[in-house]
Design a protein around this nucleic acid. Sequence first.
DNA 1: TATAATTGTGTATTGGTAACACAATGAAAT
DNA 2: ATTTCATTGTGTTACCAATACACAATTATA
Lengths: 249, 249
Amino acid sequence: MDADKQLQDFFLRGDQIYMPHLSVDCVIFGFHDNHLKVLLLKWKKGGQWCLPGGFVKYAESVDDSAVRILKERTGIDNIFLQQFHTFGDPKREKGKSLKVAEKKSWIHKRFVSVGYYALVEYSKVNPQPDIMSIECRWWDINTVPTLIYDHNKMIEKALQILRLDLNDHPLGYNLLPEKFTMPELQRLYETILDEELDRRNFQKRMLGLGILERLKERKTGGAHKAPYLYRFDKKKYDKAMKQGLSGGW
Amino acid sequence: MDADKQLQDFFLRGDQIYMPHLSVDCVIFGFHDNHLKVLLLKWKKGGQWCLPGGFVKYAESVDDSAVRILKERTGIDNIFLQQFHTFGDPKREKGKSLKVAEKKSWIHKRFVSVGYYALVEYSKVNPQPDIMSIECRWWDINTVPTLIYDHNKMIEKALQILRLDLNDHPLGYNLLPEKFTMPELQRLYETILDEELDRRNFQKRMLGLGILERLKERKTGGAHKAPYLYRFDKKKYDKAMKQGLSGGW
DNA sequence: TATAATTGTGTATTGGTAACACAATGAAAT
DNA sequence: ATTTCATTGTGTTACCAATACACAATTATA
């Protein structure tokens, strides 16, 4: 079988392409149906779930490898991607055989993993399993199963840092469709923060950032008063992303 | 010569001890004479300056290797050490020969480096050069020379993140002597932030944190009114460090 | 046509930061 | 000894932003 042969080649000769002992894992967040989602892969061997990850080519930057991995799993380019932590505990890959046996493939050795989180638009994602997995799909953040290694902790840490980043960075451009309503934006924040926010104060704060542009009415579909549609002013959004939104001192 | 032999052995057989392609660099901050300092090393070969760094042993966590490096360069243990970024650009080591030549030592290959910053008490440090350097000393943050590779950028990034961390974490325990005055603490903040702060508001804010304990008068040495001495309440300090000090949402 | 849920907008209150002033101290100068 | 002067200790006011809260408008559905 072709896939099998490819996999075998990967085990045998992957170390000619990729740097040993170094991996990249991505926590890819999406937002759908008022729920925060993470993209996960199911391993062929064992059936356990894990984060989308990969390795760093010899002449490739770590950032670029994260971009590549993301592109391969989602089909999406040009995504907001943020390095958030590097995981370097030798015991992080629990369950993995770390014997010094030379016979073992490079891939069974210890890996230090650089963690990235990404914010993507749910509907634009076309989930693609990688060579080691048979399935790739979204999981609700609240029902994520027990993952391999320290991947649950990775998600936890990514979420924690995402929440901190909310304090001084705008959010939404990569998680929402181009046009969205204020309530939708609020749901996104509430979902990420796991906390209810006051509708009126939220709106004031958001508009106060000066990165939103109001459009016209919408949705005959909604069963109630039609909310306005908004769109991010990309220039101002990017500026705010770069500079930060204020900050303590 | 013994040192030469040791160095040669390090080049030839270091890869039996350390993982290839992975390094750790430390931005060690100290505070002295109202100035922020960084500890730097001078290379034997070429005489250029660089950050204290090292490599990760096969069975050692990346965090532990940072602790070890710190201990080796400063003699200090139990220090506040924070991973702040991983530098993974293949071109980051400008000037380094990255040819695929197999004859070259493992150390001439590409390295991805995990950056840590540390806050240490200046007076407690006993600077020790490592095997590749002939000198280890403090530099004023404002007069740091051009360093090797991307080390200047590393310092910049460390400082940037340190400033952000100031917003929601206490600071000073590892940078000041046990007993210190309010003006001294303020100088520390002003130095790091590179900005003047109002004396009275600063005091209110600091005392408001509830992590300081006031002692008795001090310093016949000062040419003016003797300021109070303070000490950190370590328990409350640690708690504040762990929980963070508040935060936007 | 009435209902119910939801959206759009405005106001009062509060809390914390920023701006600011004056009395007290203590070594150095006279 | 007395004066001087930089520095410290402390409090008050002003302002801005976040919070709490209320009412009118809209729209599909009953």
